[in-house]
Each structure stands twice: as C-alpha cells, then as structure tokens.
C-alpha cells in the first residue's frame, strides 16, 4: 500500500476538485500528484489517463518556451521556483502539452508549507492567454 499523502496535499486536492479554473499539484520533490478537470483542457489529457508522474518524466512530456519562443530553462518555471525558494512565482509562457498542441498560458505557483514549516509541495493555477 502506498503512503498516505500529507493532509495539506489532501486538502489542496479537495480544493482543486471544487475549482472551475485549472490547478496542478506537486509533492515536495516536484512529482505531479494531481491536476483537476479544468486543467485537462489545457494539458490535453485526463488525469485519470496520465496519472501521477515523477518530476523526471515531466520534462519529457512538456516543452516550455518564453513568449518570444526562446527556450525556457526548468529553473525559471514558477513551480520549480516555488519548490526551490518556497516563495510564490508567476510568469506567462508557451507550453506544448500532452496532446502536442502549443498554447500560451499564465502560471502562478504557490508553495504548500504546513505547520512547523513542513514543506509538502506546491500548487499552480494556470489559464490560457488570449491575444
């Protein structure tokens, strides 16, 4: 039996499931543990099909660029910043999702830090940017 997720992640997922905007949740190691139904439209695949995913696999499944098309290093991604610096981060970017389609999105990531500075993961919300 797999280990139960920390309560902060469980509550984050409960919140995400009740939101109408896309939400993505990772654990403290950056592993994808959940994204909600609204996120499926942008990511191009249902969470039930994609499932949880180790951080190492995410780089292979997603390609990200700056808005001008230059390559964006992983260290600049809002979720990576949230997990590295334990601070909120935001930026617009281009993303090629599971379905191979390029989209322009805005991403805001916040770290999930529990009582006693327990660092359990991060939550990102994102949305498609129109012209």
């Amino acid at each position: 039996m797999a280990t139960q997720h920390p309560i902060e992640l469980i509550l984050a997922r409960r919140l995400a499931e009740s939101m109408s905007h896309p939400v993505w949740i990772t654990d403290a190691l950056g592993n994808l543990v959940f994204y909600n139904e609204p996120a499926e439209g942008i990511l191009g695949v249902r969470f039930g099909e994609a499932g949880e995913m180790p951080a190492s696999a995410l780089a292979e499944r997603f390609v990200t660029e700056d808005l001008d098309g230059t390559e964006m290093p992983a260290s600049d991604l809002p979720l990576v910043i949230a997990l590295r610096d334990w601070l909120p981060a935001h930026r617009p970017m281009r993303i090629r999702s599971f379905d191979g389609v390029w989209r322009v999105i805005g991403v805001t990531a916040i770290p999930l830090v529990g009582v006693g500075d327990r660092r359990v993961g991060a939550l990102a919300t994102f949305w498609e940017l129109k012209d």
Binding site: M1, A2, T3, Q4, H5, I7, I10, R13
Partner: peptide, 9 residues
C-alpha cells in the same frame, strides 16, 4: 483512494 484519504495512514 486510500492515499488521498485523511487519517488512512
């Protein structure tokens, strides 16, 4: 979903 259930552990 036990791993997503509060108190399961």
């Amino acid at each position: 979903e036990p791993v997503w259930t509060s108190g399961f552990g």
